[in-house]
Design a protein around this nucleic acid. Sequence first.
DNA 1: GTCTAGGTGTGTATCGATACACAAGGACAC
DNA 2: GTGTCCTTGTGTATCGATACACACCTAGAC
Lengths: 341, 341
Amino acid sequence: MRDVARTAGVSAMTVSYVYSQPGRVSDEAAARVRAAAHELGYPGPHPAARSLRQGRVGTLGVVLGERLGYAFDDPQAARFLAGVADVCAAEGVGLTLVPITGAPSDVERVARAVVDGLVVWTTSDDDPVLDAVADTGLPAVVHAGPHHRGLPVVGIDDRAAAEAVGRVAFTGARRPVVLGFPLDRARDRQLLDGDAVGPVRFPVTRHRWEGLRDAWTGAGRPAAELRLAVCPVNDADQGEALTAELLAGADRPDAIAAMSDELALGALRAVADAGLAVPGAVAVTGWDDSDAAEPAGLTTVAQSLRAQGAACALVALGRPGDVPGRDAWRVVERTTTRRPG
Amino acid sequence: MRDVARTAGVSAMTVSYVYSQPGRVSDEAAARVRAAAHELGYPGPHPAARSLRQGRVGTLGVVLGERLGYAFDDPQAARFLAGVADVCAAEGVGLTLVPITGAPSDVERVARAVVDGLVVWTTSDDDPVLDAVADTGLPAVVHAGPHHRGLPVVGIDDRAAAEAVGRVAFTGARRPVVLGFPLDRARDRQLLDGDAVGPVRFPVTRHRWEGLRDAWTGAGRPAAELRLAVCPVNDADQGEALTAELLAGADRPDAIAAMSDELALGALRAVADAGLAVPGAVAVTGWDDSDAAEPAGLTTVAQSLRAQGAACALVALGRPGDVPGRDAWRVVERTTTRRPG
DNA sequence: GTCTAGGTGTGTATCGATACACAAGGACAC
DNA sequence: GTGTCCTTGTGTATCGATACACACCTAGAC
C-alpha cells in the first residue's frame, strides 16, 4: 500500500480512503491511486490486516462437533445451516464452518477461528469444544444444548415434545421401540432395553428419550419394555436397516418412535418391505416435519430448524431478534399412527 | 498479551511461545504465563492478528454466486460442497461461504473475504465475481467453468456427456424435451423451441444444451423440434410441475432429458401421475447419478460432484493432487430409457 | 476584510501478534 | 580450563491496514 501511495504521490491514508470511503477523496486523487494500484498490481486492502484494525471480520463461525462433511450429509444439520445462511446473506456476512475432527486439537481450531461470533450445533455435555467457545469471548450460542458456562441456548423443549409425540406413537402398542440418535460421542450402534440405557451424553438424545420413556411409563407400563435402537448416522438407510433387523427379530415392534423424519422414513420403507400395514401392524412417528413427511403421511413433531438456525445466527451476531420459544413445536398427526380408542 | 507478559514477569515473546510452541518454554514459565492469562482473562492469541503476521488464515473460501442458503438447498451444490468439506476437514482448514447477494457489492465481499484460497461454484460467463476472485491473487479454481483470466477449471466435458446421454434419451423419440437449468442470471422460467434459444450465459447449461441438441440433430432431426424447458430452481418439485404442464399441453413429450437427477425424478413423478408408462410412453434421463437415481431406475450421467469438490479444494489450497479428468463421466443406462432397435 | 464552513490531504499511533537473531547460563567432554 | 552444545528467554522489526485529530485551502456570508 505504501508503494501505491508513493507512486500516486499521495499519503497512505489517502489510498486507504480510496478503498474504504470513496466519497472522502477527490476524483482526481482517486483516479491516480487506482492507476497506481493497477500498475503495481495492488489487489486492494489486505483482509486480515483490515480485520485486525477494525476488530471485525465479517464472518460467522459454526462449530459442528463433527467432521465438516456432516454439514452437508445430515439433513437436520443442513436445514439448520440453511437458516444460519439466510441470516448471514441478509447481513452480508460470511459463514465459516470451523473444522472439527474429534481430536484434542479441535479446541485449538476453535481458538484460531477468524470469526465475529460462534454458533454451536448441539453437542455432548462433555465436549471440550464448548469450553473453547466460551473462552474466545465472542458472542456465541448453542443450539439445543447443552447449557455450559452461561452460553445462551436456542431450542425447543425436546422432552415435552417427545412425551407428546410418544403418547401418539404408543397408542395401543405393546412392543414399542425408539429409533434414536447416538448416546455419546462413541456413536455405537446398539439395541437396549429401556431400563438398561446408561448415561446419555447428548442432551437432544437424552431429552427425547426421557420424554418418550415418560410417555410409555406414564401409561402405566414398565420402563424395560420400551427398547432403544441407536442409529449412528441420521439417514433413511440406517433407519431402514435397523428397522428391518427389528422386524425380523423376536418381539416384532408394533410402534416405532424415531428421533428424526429421516430415520422414520427409513423405518417406513422397512415396514413396507416386510409387508406390514401402517399403522395397523406398526405405527411410526418422526421428528421435524421435513418436506418428505407430509407426502409420506408421517406423524411427526413440527419444529423449524431453519428458524432456529436463523435465530442462532442473529444471537451470535450480537443482534438477538425474536428467538423461537421452547414451546415452538407441535405434534402433527397424520396417517402413520393409530387413533386412540 | 503485554499485560499477561508483565504479570507473569516474562517477555511478550515468551507468552507467544507458550501458545504457539509450548515445547519451547520451560514448564515453570509456561505455568506462570497460563496463570497470568487466566487471571487477566486473556483468551489466547487474537486470530486476526495471528493471521496477519503469519500470512495464513486457515480457511478456504467458497463463492457460490448465489445467496448462501443455496449451498444447503441445492442438492448438487451440497454434494460438491461435501467434497470440499472433506478435504478441509482432512487438512484442518475451515470452510467459509462467501456471501453473495447478486448486488454489485458482491465484488467487494469477495475482496474482503479472509481466506487462504477460493473455490468458485460454476457461474455465468459475465459474472463480475470472477474478476474479483482473480484480483485477490489467492490460489483459486472455478468449478465447471467459465474459463476466465487463466483461472484453473475443474470439471467434466459436459458437452460430450450430454451428447452421449442424449442419444440414449432420444432413442425412438419424436417429441423430445430438455428440462434444463436457467440460461442466465435472470433465471426466468420458460419454454423455448430449439431454434429459439438465445445466448446461454451459464457454461454448464450451455454445454449440456448443445450436447443434447447435437444428439438430436445428429440423428438427422431438425433443431427446432427439440424443446427446452427452463427450471429456475433445481429441485424435484420444479421438475414435476414443469413436466406436468408439458404433459398436459399439446405435443406431449415422449422423451425428457433433464440436466439433473432432481429434475428428472420430479419428471418421473409427473409422468406417473399422468398415468403414462416409462419408458414406453415417455423416456427420462437425469444427470449426476445421485443416491436416488438407482432405486428409481433412472438412466443418468454418472459423475462425482463430491470428488470434483475435493479436487477443487486441493487446488485452492495450493496442493493440486489428482484432478478428475474431463472424461470422468459415463452414461449409466437403467430402466427409464428405451433400448435401441 | 474577516470569519465560518466544508471539502481534502497528511501524520501518528495503534490493532495484536510472530520471525528471527541473539544472549545468558548450565551441562558435559576432554 | 575451555570449547561446544542445548535450553530458555529477550528485543526489535514487521505483518498491512485504519481511527483520529489536525492542517490547509477555497468559497461564501456579511
